[in-house]
Design a protein around this nucleic acid. Sequence first.
RNA 1: GCCUCGGUGGCUUAGGGGUAUAGCGCGUCCUUGGUAAGGACGAGGUCGCGGGUUCAAAUCCCGCCCGAGGCUCCA
Length: 636
Amino acid sequence: MQLLLIHSDYIEYEVKKSTPVAEKIEESFRSGRLDEALTAFIAVEKVDESGVDEVINKALTEIRNVAGQVKAENIMLYPYAHLSSDLSSPKIAVSVLKGIEKELSGEFNVKRAPFGWYKAFRISCKGHPLSELSRSIVPEGGPVSCGEAIAVTDEKEEVVSEALKAESTAKSYWHILTPDGELHSIDDFDFKGHENLQKFVNYEISKQRAVERAPPHVELMRRLEIADYEPGSDSGNMRYYPKGRLIKSLLENFVLEESYKVGAMEVETPLMYDMEHPTLKKYLDRFPARQYSIESDKRHMFLRFAACFGQFLMNHDMTISYKNLPMKMIEMTRYSFRKEQRGELVGLRRLRAFTMPDMHSLCTDMEQAVAQFDAQYNMCIGVLDKVGIKVDDFEVAVRFTREFYEDNRDFITNLAKTVEKPVLVEMWDTRFFYFVLKFEFNFVDALAKASALSTVQIDVENAERYDINYIDTDGTAKKPVILHCSPSGAIERCIYGLLEKEAMNSENGGVPMLPLWLSPTQVRIIPISEKHMDFALQVAEKLDYRVDIDDREDTVGKKVREAGREWVPYVVVVGDKEVETGNITVTVRSESEPNKPKKVQMTLEELNARIGSEVRGMPYKGLPLAQLLSARPRFL
RNA sequence: GCCUCGGUGGCUUAGGGGUAUAGCGCGUCCUUGGUAAGGACGAGGUCGCGGGUUCAAAUCCCGCCCGAGGCUCCA
């Protein structure tokens, strides 16, 4: 069903001429008018025939919902065939319209325009934000658009699909699940000791999102010369300075390495796709709004918003045996593009072009998929932990259908046990999305805003849609269950999380810094005067990590201050004393307090060993900028 | 789409009918300094764009563009 809702000052109609399918009407029915009315233009479609009652119920939910929001007491039901090119039989259509009319007539003043007549009508749309809305309603089990294919591993409101439309009609049951397996209602749950979860719940359910200042990471990303807005591009497309590029690159490599460890094959797929491709066309014809589109000669392309497209199309062409399953594929999408609305973009939190690891696992059946889900849940915890975002820094949301829960109760409980804290649960009576089970780890920032990082979903639809098969033991082709997984979430969002975390740390009287393996400068050497430069160079030579030298003509005090502002983890001042002994005094940022630097005497070997043990197993790259600070340009 | 605020040298910013502050940064020089900003001098701006009012507009008025935040919305 296609539903177009117009909140109007008035709507009036008058029948002109009957069509062959016209319903018989009384004289009084030939014209009608309602003032201050919500008009529902309705086209009943072929697919609705498979679930008439359900479609009626969904339509009622929509209409009641909107009528409530705009405070309309009068409702005009107006059959409007032109909203769809695939109409139901007239008989069904009339029964649906009458069904809706009957249900609404108790609560509202309802009129229904006659079906099957050419009618003249006049309407005066109010023009406020809620005054014009359209909805598509599809019965469960009916064909759905291929759009869910592109569904997303990044965050809930970006899940792209028919399912999203259905979301407004989907009834969500919210709970808090504690590690003991108890499902608590949100209202009764005592959030003492779980303040972040409270914030997350407020954000997610109560939609408390107002905030009075810019997020702290925006200033930090610029001051630390990580990333910046690029006025020459579209909003939400950032530029990354050398330090930011280093951090991103290390994070990207790290997530890829972790994926290789669990057996994922890295692939690369195109950034743009043809809108006319048969598998994608239907979806894109219907919902052209959210992606960048590109005219290329005569072809009309769009930019991907995840790697699902490319990988599923690749899977479709592959020959896959049950012996190959579970089969994992990953791509570090640089970039995924989503044309988010202007006002939704913020710093590194929400972008229009972002880097997201997107891994898909093909599994033989639900049992294997659930086992994989469990393994990947734990993998995601480990990945974020090493990135520097600990279990305490995020809140877990688990979303599933009631049916899945009843079949897998212990499994779900175990998810809360694993993180040893209560998690937010969203449960649906019926499956509106392409997945039956999903989790996300949500970072709650300095302003109590939540955003999803890692996520895994069990997808039970797209193997069918993309016609992806594997050959089972008996020689027949079967459809796999597919897991979507973003082990870390968007890379930019990890950086945002780290910066926000340190901003909070700083506000609480801590000394902010990035994890050592991500710090652009790991050791800063400050020679006291020019005559100590030789020694400084020797020290730099003997250290194995990213070491730079502040050789600028400034006072020692100023250089120390600047090293602090850059969050340099180890600062070494060298002068006559060091030249004499050959040993160094190191200011250790991680053990310092504001205005109370922690200084430790050590040898170069000891410093090397100390850094080595802290960054063991993590990716490494050399300095992203000149070693001598005097040779570095300023980026802002 | 709506609301608020903003657009002045590379950055941050003051001011506001008579073409303009200051700090940082940058350059030159002095200082060769031991853990959170040493000093002096200098270069650098048609005050977002277009129109209007005026003897005179960066300043007032109108329109537009761009940015930040919020709201709303979001296949």
